[in-house]
Design a binder for these strands. Sequence first.
RNA 1: GGGCGUAUAGCUCAGUUGGUUAGAGCGCCACGUUGACAUCGUGGAGGUCACUGGUUCGAGUCCAGUUAUGCCCACCA
Length: 896
Amino acid sequence: MQPTEQDLHVEIAKAYEPQAIEAKWVRRWEELGVFTAQVESAKQPFVLACPPPNVTGSLHLGHAVNGTIQDILARTKRMQGYEVLWQPGTDHAGIATQYVVEKKLFREQGKTRHDLGRDAFLEKVWAWKQESGDRIFEQFKRLGASLDYTRWRFTMDEGYSRAVRRAFVQLYKKGYIYRGNRMINWCPSCLTSLSDLEVTTREQDDALYHIRYPMADGEGALVVATVRPETMLGDVAVAVHPEDDRYREYLNRQVQLPLTDRKIPVVADSYVEREFGTGCLKITPAHDANDFAIGQRHGLPVLNTLTATAILNETTGQYAGLTREVARKKVVADLESAGFLVKTEPYTHAVGRCSRCDTVLEPYLSDQWFVKMHELATPAIQAVESGRIKFHPSRWGDVYLDWMKNIQDWNISRQLWWGHQIPVWTCAAGHVTVEQQDPAACATCGDNHLTQDPDVLDTWFSSALWTYATLGWPDATPELTRFHPTQVLSTARDIIYLWVARMIFTSLEFLDEIPFSDVIIHATILDPEGRRMSKSKGTGVDPLLIMDKYGTDATRFWLAGAGTSSQDVRFREEKIETYRNFANKLWNASRFILTKAATKADSSRSLPAEVSTVSSPIDRWILSRLHGLIRDVSAHIDQYAFADAISALYDFTWNEFCDWYLELAKPRLESDDTAVRRVLAEVMDTLLRLLHPFMPFITEEISQQLVERQWAVSSQTLQHRPWPQFDPAAIDLEAEGEMALLIGTVRALRNMRAELRVEPGKVAPEVRIRVTRDAHPAFVRLSDLIARLGRAERITLLEDGQIVETARSATAMVGENQVILPFDGFGDVLEREVKRLQKEVGALEQEQTRIRQQLSNESFVSKAPAAVVDKIRARGSEVAVQLETLERQLTAWSNA
RNA sequence: GGGCGUAUAGCUCAGUUGGUUAGAGCGCCACGUUGACAUCGUGGAGGUCACUGGUUCGAGUCCAGUUAUGCCCACCA
């Protein structure tokens, strides 16, 4: 049954109201299972692994940017006929989660994890994970993210844990994992070691203390400079440069270490910079990585003066029990009163801090597990150098390579409880057993009293397996076969080393294939002042609030453009407002079409319009522009240049479709004109499909309304519709040229009316246009439209060369055509017209001078490409005609 | 100390392989209720493209240097 006109006259909200519509489509998509990837499908796969957010996390702008970027790809590829898997999941985020739960425990119960014990504490963490674990995916759903939620994985779920075990054991058995007693970064607050990547360095103002160390034999003294005077209690030597003449005589003698009864040697080491400070370096092997190395070279002892919590230990005598901060003050005071403090000068230097809790780290000597990186890095370097993996923008590939080529061994053990416990067992005899399954007995001696290493693995060790562990590895699952390697990975640049690099080398090691072929590094969103957003400073922006306020589509439209910008972008609400307005524009355009066009002439419903059957130049123009848009948007998406796609979509929709085509369609809709209805339906339907990956909600809603009125092909969702195909035959430069004449003429008339201050409501009885021979047929076709949009009752076309009485009228040039607007009924506007003409003539004269200079420059004419010279010549003759006409007009005025 | 970015309209940003009238949004000024949209429409003003030098017939675009600014890496206490 065909809907009647009354059925069609449904109320459509005057402004786009996103909330209810978004909620409806989130539900609907889920019910229909639109995002579920089919392993069995015959389609070519397109796979994105979503960077797993922390279980405890909630959606921030970074997630929103990245989610939008990936969703655009996922939705586009679905429409393009791919079997899309966008893999979701969360990361257990060892240190971050443990830190949050410990804080909560202390706040609520005043207890530490040690009060509870390992098992009870882990129960707490699991409970917390249960509580907040899927909140972020509810938020992703609101964003419209078309993740396959049925395949959600967690880095500590059962299968994933097996993958982690398998990875560790394989690396261990191949000799890539070793235990070493080395200087690592220690957080005295989190009480764990950290990898170099988990250290943030920040400059701070301190003092550089110059301390006199008297020679043990009483003859002279050396002065050392340090920012950490309290560490002198652990000094075991003073080093000078071997070729430093100032100190030659001190070598191989001893100094009496102040505040202690110890005598320590003076050694020579070329590490010492002669120019820095006094050229004498105190050596504290237990508390400085360089000093440790120097100590090794000279066979010096290691004297640890700190506890794990950075409190001075019993070796420091009277200072034992003090924190490092208090000890520093006391040591300085004692040195000063004993006369050892030579001077103190202000000093700015970089200090390493825990990236989690911001505590100043201690270099700390301890037993840790490491991954030997050099050999593993080699194929990972090759994969990027050969172009098998491409970074976008490409400069991040160089950043990756720099790091990979200077790779250091990776400290993977953490003294935490939350995470994958290291699968290494030791028996009473000290034999080590490393197995995937928990062993019952020692592999060497059969002893069945085994102790598992209490440490857990670095969180990044497990997330490094993300692209394939989520698909079932180490089992050869159908998913793994079908969906790996993945295609695109999109992420923030601050985890290129932590995560991207490690996924690459583990995938090459375990599967002998790359994990993905393209890496998109998206831009960072900064606050309005250009600073990094930070939760603690309160400069963070909650994307959910923005979505509530402006609609998710508007937010996504901005995010997609911002995220693929080549530089970082500042967040500003006004920018989202622009796209909120855009969504509203689109909404109203469709409202207009649905209420005005779709209510008449049922015959128009045999849609869509075939390009070849369209005859009106205006219709051919919009279809030509539409196909240009299809071509450009498709290309931009292929190149991940979403910002370009967005501006093309925005400009077409607003400036070409709404401002011109819809306006031109209005008079035609008064009649039963079927062509205009077909074209409107075709453009609208195509536009909605092009916009859909960027603005899924509003496009889905409008599209369904079109379907209800049988104005678009029926389908459950736009995801089931094909991506628009570019048709080169639709490109019609002639129609575009004709439209340029129309737009130019209408603008010229509007400009004259505005500048002459003609009342907007006043219709000119006549507008005369003196047209060139070439343009004549076009103007004949366009006259009615020009009259309507240019507010004239009648258009009279004059032949080129025809002498015209131009008095009492305003003149503007459109190319070489003269648009003449008689003053009839406009009042006294002569003076304004003269001013207008003078301004125009002035500008044209300037341009003409420039062009003449150009063309009289022989080397330009002979060396520049002919096309460029021709273009300037053509413009030159156009300018000449325009000038001549306008000047004649001016003369006529001055004679009048 | 090394590396990578960025400097274009009052603000936030585009400007493809160098081609001659440098664009957009916001803001600003003037006008506007022809029923899709005031979250709108029409017209307008506004830029010696950070600076200096070079290459070229021609430079916002390429090269060198300078200044400012941001980020990353790094073991000078």
